[in-house]
């Protein structure tokens, strides 16, 4: 896979060193993200006419699951 390419390893190493690594304490958030991956907060495909990004179900789900 592309992840094995040297430049991506370098990038990953950089991100980890810069502190953008372990989801750790908030790892539980990721499962929420995964489930709703197809649905962004602010901008969604034109056929979704409900709500706004300020109070979408998605964002409330996100912060519900972000509880640590």
């Amino acid at each position: 896979m592309n992840d094995k390419k040297p430049e991506n390893l370098k990038r990953r190493g950089f991100l980890l060193a810069a502190g953008v690594g372990s989801a750790g304490a908030v790892a539980v958030v990721a499962s929420g993200i995964g489930k709703e991956a197809a649905k962004p907060l602010a901008v969604v495909s034109a056929d979704d006419k409900a709500g706004s990004y300020r109070e979408s179900q998605h964002i409330s789900n996100y912060y519900r699951t972000a509880r640590v």
Partner: peptide
């Protein structure tokens, strides 16, 4: 269709979520 995220991509997604929430309201 539901690609697994690496740890750093999860952390990136979480940072973007936090930044969005900081400024959306």
């Amino acid at each position: 269709s539901a690609p697994a995220l690496t740890d750093e991509d999860r952390a990136r997604a979480e940072h973007y979520a936090v930044l969005s929430r900081l400024f959306s309201s």
